[in-house]
């Protein structure tokens, strides 16, 4: 047991908008705090009173079940009251802006707004108009910080470290907020990042962030300690970016045969929901390398940590 825990930097942010703006130390502070909350999740009584009386609103302008459920449960485990607001497309087309909607919800006493929106930068804009803490639960193709944090936590818990590992992000990088947040987080924590997918889905300009870009999965897979398989977003029009699912699967699908040529201790992550048979085969998804379910558990711990940390900042007077 750790008799004398290392001092950590105090958390000073009221919002969590993305990993790009966080320092390495801040990311580590979240991961360490999440480790503490992981312990809470192992108890029979999985609840602590820290956020009693606080109100956490899930403000989702885009469909999501997993992230919303995970945030709700995380808030409940901290004894906060939670409320979901699935933004009806109707109220927004009636001329009410999302800022109006958010202000309305804040007037109901929300202390934390967990925001999912299809447009990049929307949570950032919101922070200029509300007093509550804002947590970005995914803004378009920009960032999805808690997903990347749970990926980082999963890697750290299962491999003991992140620094020095080679992590491959495979698939639709261009449209992926998960990819962007992962890139920032992994690079800050000292991992090597390889982006892999067809050129139409992997913008080469991302090399400027310090990643390696490859279009050949078979070439880069053996180099990877971790592979994070990003989802092909069929809700977007992908016809223009690759000719067929069959061809995509042939080139980038994670099959058992491919995994056999990878490192024996390869760790396989997928942010989900996955398309079995497109990004990876069922046997790989359920196989020994897969940490997909650990990710879900760690997601709770990460979201508890983030809710706890942002709630610790004094809010402006209303």
């Amino acid at each position: 047991m750790n008799l004398n825990p290392a001092p950590r930097i105090p958390w000073t942010r009221k919002h969590l908008l993305g990993l790009e703006e966080l320092s390495r130390e801040e990311i580590l502070a979240i991961l360490d705090t999440a480790d503490s909350f992981h312990e809470v999740s192992t108890r029979n009584r999985k609840k602590v009173p820290a956020l009693t009386g606080r109100v956490v609103f899930n403000l989702f302008f885009e469909n999501s079940t997993r992230t919303r459920t995970s945030f709700s449960l995380a808030a409940k485990r901290l004894s906060a009251d939670t409320q979901d607001f699935q933004a009806g497309v109707s109220s927004l087309t009636k001329g009410e802006t999302f800022i109006d909607t958010a202000k309305n919800i804040e007037a109901m006493g929300a202390d934390v707004l967990v925001v999912r929106h299809p447009t990049p930068g929307t949570p950032h804009l919101l922070t200029q108009h509300v007093h509550a803490s804002v947590i970005n639960a995914g803004d378009g193709a920009h960032e999805h910080p808690t997903q990347a944090l749970l990926d980082l936590l999963t890697i750290r818990r299962l491999r003991g470290r992140i620094e020095g590992l080679t992590v491959g992000l495979v698939g639709d990088i261009g449209h992926s907020r998960v990819a962007r947040s992962n890139i920032h987080g992994l690079l800050k924590l000292g991992a090597k990042v390889i982006l892999c997918g067809p050129p139409t889905l992997v913008p080469r300009s991302l090399e400027r962030l310090g990643c390696t870009v490859s279009n050949n999965l078979d070439e880069v897979l053996p180099l990877c300690d971790v592979v994070n398989v990003l989802r092909i977003q069929f809700e977007r029009d992908q016809k223009a970016v690759f000719p067929s699912i069959a061809e995509y699967f042939r080139l980038y699908g994670l099959t058992a045969a491919r995994v056999e040529r990878a490192k024996s201790d390869l760790l396989l992550l997928a942010p989900g929901p996955i398309n079995r048979g497109v990004e990876l085969t069922p046997e790989v998804a359920d196989g020994p390398h897969s940490a997909i379910l650990d990710q879900v558990t760690n997601g709770l711990a990460v979201r508890m940590a983030v809710l706890y940390l942002v709630s610790g900042q004094k809010t402006d007077p209303r």
């Binding site: 001092p7 958390w11 705090t33 503490s36 940590a305 940390l309 709630s311 610790g312 004094k314």
Partner: peptide, 12 residues
Amino acid sequence: RAARWPVLHGTE
């Protein structure tokens, strides 16, 4: 009441 919440070190 705290201006800033304490850093969490966890129950073990």
